[in-house]
Every structure is written in structure tokens, then in C-alpha cells.
Design a protein around this nucleic acid. Structure first.
Ligand SMILES: [Mn+2]
Ligand SMILES: [Mn+2]
Ligand SMILES: [Zn+2]
Ligand SMILES: [Zn+2]
Lengths: 153, 153
DNA sequence: TTGATATTGATAATCGTTCTCAACTAGCGT
DNA sequence: ACGCTAGTTGAGAACGATTATCAATATCAA
């Protein structure tokens, strides 16, 4: 039994418990969508996940996928991100990190910086704020896109 | 002649030069919209600025305001921000800063942190990226919203 | 098995923003 | 001043990811 396997089982259990705790139902659709979501690594849109889901379960509707992903966030299984205005990307919930995005090819690099996290808390405290979340995105050109000079801008 | 006055004149000149340099035309509408924009301090949506503009110039259309604000960004007079997905806020272009947003009352606090800026550059460099911009938003509850406990969430 | 309640899928609606396009100018050369 | 031409405008349609609606259907505790 791989680490990956236990992680997925953990997620399934987590959803089941969340549903029970909130008087919600465990449906075929939610199980299928969770399965697809867990099978994806990285960042994905609802629309894109819908494609994957539909490949195996053609009867599941798009609205259900949108709803499920939001549910997964509420249940602590997923995390929503907004790199470009207008599209939501989801990733597996895990240890906190922020992102570096290549505006050339779309590559996404994850990073962690405790120092920055500390400064954020200090800034919030200095202004009397209690932080609930933050959004820290760095945009630029990756090494590859810099060398293949044929880029926009 | 106040500092404020010269700042506004500077902006007007900047737009005029940008337009000339790019074979674009200086129109009544653009002048009027710039006037309204300069009269606003802080952060404002296109839609909201359109209200102001319309009060003085009822014939100017919404599309023109949307276009003008985008133009002002290109000309280096304005800066676009996305605190909530789906709405664009504009502010006067000035020295760089980031934002602390109260999710209770919507208050926006501006902050600067050279240390964070430095870490950002280091992170980018470590990954071979050349940064073009970043988005750093801290969300939380301001002091006032924390005490008046009657808040959402 | 039943029945109350939650969920689903198709589709309409949302909403800030952009696009379309015919009418209208700014601004150059004359 | 005049005229040309390319850029600009305003109204309204179109967009696009997401959400709301709602009748049909599935879940699950009793
Ligand atoms: Mn990530
Ligand atoms: Mn600001
Ligand atoms: Zn790249
Ligand atoms: Zn507040």
C-alpha cells in the first residue's frame, strides 16, 4: 500500500465524514468526481476536470463538477486559486505554499517562504488586522521562455 | 499652484505624449474621463468611475470609460487590481505598494515591505524566473470589524 | 419499503467586460 | 478653411466562467 494510496483513502474518508457531519449525501457523482480529482496532480480548472470526469462517466453534468469542487474546498480537500481573473484553479489541499507563474508558457512553480509569512503577520498586526488568508503570486518568464525570445511583451 | 495641481498636469501631459507617440487621438471623452479619474483618490471600478463621468458628461458611454481606463494603464497613469474575482479596481499609478483588505467592511490598507520585495526577487532568481509583476494581497478583518462581532464568517 | 430531504442535470441567468459596427471626429496635408 | 483617412465613439450584442432554477431522481434513516 503506497503512500499515495493512503493519501487518497484519507481524502475519501474525510469527505464521507464531512458529508455525514453536515447532513449531506454520499452520491455516485461525488465519489466519481473525487476519484478524478485525486487522480490529477497539480492545478486544474472545473471545466478541465469535467472533461476527465465525463470521459469515464458521461452522465455527470458540468454543474455537478462545479458544485463538487466547491464542496471539496469546504471539506478541506481542495483549494481554490485565481491566477488569471475569471478562472478558478483547484489543487489538492496540503501544506501552504504560494506560486510563481510563467506568463509565457503557463508553468506554475510552488514556493514557500517562512520569512515572508512572518512579515505578512507583522504587517497585519501593525494595522490591527486579523488575517484569514492571503494571495501571493509572482508573475514572470521562466528560464525556457526567456531564451526562446519569441515571446509576447 | 499646489503639488496636487502639478501632479494632475503631469498626468495630462503624460497622456498627451503617449497618445501622440502611438498615433492615437486626444478626444473630449478621454480628457473628461482622465479628469474624473484624477479627481478620485483611492481605488475605483470602471463602472463606478462611469457614474462620476456620466454626472458631468451624460453623453459618454460606458464602453468608452472601460477603454479609457485600460488606456491609462498602458500610458502608465493607472494601475489595475483584482481583489475579488470578477471586478477590476483602478488606482493612480505611483510608487509600488501592496494591499491589506478587510473582508468585513471592504477597507483597503496599502503597505510597503522592502524585505518581502527582496525575498520575491530571490525566489524568482532561484527558479530562473525574470519577474514582471506580482500580486500580494492580505485578507482579514480590520480592528473595527473584529470588535463588532456581527460579521459574516 | 417508505418518505422526507438532498442532489442532479439541463438550461437559463448572471455580470463585468469586451466586441461589433455604423456614425462620428481629430488632426494631418493641402 | 477643406477634405481625407484612420482612429474613436456609443449602443447594444456577445462573451464566458460560474451560479441559479427547477422538475426529476437518488440517498438513507426509520
Ligand atoms: Mn499549488
Ligand atoms: Mn493601492
Ligand atoms: Zn515559461
Ligand atoms: Zn473592516
Amino acid at each position: 500500500m503506497s503512500e499515495h494510496q493512503t493519501e487518497q483513502d484519507g481524502a475519501r474518508t474525510q469527505l464521507t465524514e464531512y458529508l455525514a457531519r453536515n447532513g449531506m449525501k454520499q452520491t455516485r457523482q461525488r465519489e466519481a468526481i473525487l476519484e478524478s480529482f485525486l487522480g490529477v496532480s497539480g492545478h486544474i480548472t472545473s471545466e478541465n476536470l469535467y472533461e476527465y470526469v465525463r470521459a469515464q462517466y458521461p452522465d455527470i453534468g458540468a454543474a455537478t463538477v462545479y458544485r463538487a469542487l466547491k464542496l471539496f474546498c469546504d471539506a478541506g480537500l481542495a483549494h481554490a486559486l485565481h491566477f488569471q481573473d475569471g478562472v478558478t484553479l483547484y489543487e489538492h489541499e496540503g501544506h501552504h505554499h504560494d506560486h510563481l507563474i510563467c506568463v509565457g508558457c503557463g508553468e506554475i512553480v510552488e514556493f514557500e517562504c517562512d520569512d515572508i509569512e512572518d512579515f505578512q503577520l507583522r504587517i497585519a498586526r501593525d494595522h490591527g488586522y486579523r488575517l484569514t488568508k492571503h494571495r501571493h503570486h509572482l508573475y514572470g518568464y521562466c528560464a525556457k521562455c526567456q531564451s526562446s525570445g519569441t515571446d509576447r511583451k
